[in-house]
Design a protein around this nucleic acid. Sequence first.
DNA 1: TCTGGGGTCCTAGGACCC
DNA 2: TCTGGGGTCCTAGGACCC
Length: 404
Amino acid sequence: MSKRLIMHIDLDAFFASIEQRDHPEYQGRPLVVGAKPGRRGVVATCSYEARRYGVRSAMPISEAARRLPAETVYLRPDINRYGEVSHQIMSALQNLSPVVEKVSVDEAFLDITGMERLIGDAESIGHKAKQLIHDQVGLTASVGIGPNRLIAKLASDYQKPDGLTVVKADQVEAFLSPLPLTVLRGLGTKSAPILQRLGLRTVADVRRLSLLELRRQLGNLAGTNIYQQARGIASDSVNDQSTRKSISKETTFGQDITDPAILRESLRWSAQEVGYVARQEQRKGSLVTLKIRFRGFDTHTRNRRLATPTSADQVIFKTAWELYQNDPWGNQPVRLIGVGISGWDDAIDEEEKQPDLFGDPQPETDARQDRLYQTLDEVSGKFGRHAIRLGSKRANSKAGSGSE
DNA sequence: TCTGGGGTCCTAGGACCC
DNA sequence: TCTGGGGTCCTAGGACCC
C-alpha cells in the first residue's frame, strides 16, 4: 500500500481578508461580509477582529449586529472578485503540485506524495505553499499536511490563522484523540447530539463505541464512516477533475411574498440565471427542480424529468412554473423560491448550444450583460458598445456563497 | 439568534417488474 | 381472506458542507 501525503489549504477569513487587503481603511476593524444589518440573511465571513465578539460564519446577521461595535464594516459579497482571487491562488498552487482539487472558493487539497525528494520535508512544502499564495495574492492561508484528507483538513484547522500543522502517520491517533467529536465529517447539528447524549465528547470517546453501536445510532453508512474517521481512516485520493452535478438559483425575499406575479418573475429570473450558466458550461439537464420555502422554513421540492435535456431559459422557467402551479400550496406566504437543473445528457451537441439571447428575458448578471454586449458588437460592428441600451443592471441584492 | 446560497449525498417509501 | 421476495427506479425530504 502506498503511503500518500495530502495537503489541505484553507484561506484565512477569505472574503473578509480580500476586503481588508483592498481597503486599508478596513484593516484592524471588525468587518462582516454577508447580509446587511436589518435585513434577512447571515454572516458569510467575518474578519478576525469580528470573531473576537463571538461572531461566526452562518450566524444570523441580526445577532452579529447585536454583538458587534458601531465601527464595524458591513459589506455585501462580491463573488466575482473573490472568484478571480481564488483562480489566481489555484493557478499558483498548480506550480507546486499538478494534482490540485479545488473544494470551494477558498479551499483546496493537493497530493504532495513524493515531493519531499524535490522540495524537502513536509514542513518545507507547506511553507512553500503559503509563500506562493502570499506572493501571488498577498493573503494568508492555513495549511495542514497528513496521510489522508481527513487528517490534512483537521490539521489545517488546528492552527489559524496563518498556521501550518503537519501530522505524521504515527501521530494520527494522538492528534485526533482530544479533539471534540464534532470535528468528524458528517457529525452536524442532528447526529452530533445523538453521540453527545451518550456522554461522548471527544474523538477518543467515539472510539470506545463498537461499530455495531455506531451503526445503530447513526445508520449503517454514517456509523461505519464515523467509526473509521475516529481511527484516522479516510480517503487519501485527490481528485483534480470533478464536474458539478447540478446548477441552481434561488432567492430569499426580503419579506414573504403572496403575489403570484412576483413569484413568477422571480422564477423567470432564476431560470435565466440557471440557463445562462448551463449554456456557458455547455451542459443540458433533463431534470428540473423547483424549490420553495414557506414561512417557518417549511421547505419543499418538486421535480420533473424532461423528454429532452435543455439549457433553454424558457423551458426551465415554464417547467418550474408548472411545477409550482401543479401543487395546491394555497396562499401561504413564500420566503424563498428557486429552480435548478441536473441530470446531464453528457454528450453535448455543438449546434444546439447557441445562447438564447434574444428571447424576452432581460440580462441580469454583469456576466450576462457583458456577454450580450459582446455578442451585439460581434453581430453588428457599426453599433458602438453604448449605442444600445439594455435592461437595467441587476439590483445589488445577490448574496454570495458562504465559507471562510 | 430566526435561519443566504450553492452544492453533495443519503434515506425512505411507492411504483413497477419478474 | 390473503397479500412472497427481490431488484430497480423515481420522488421528496433532509443532513451536512463551505
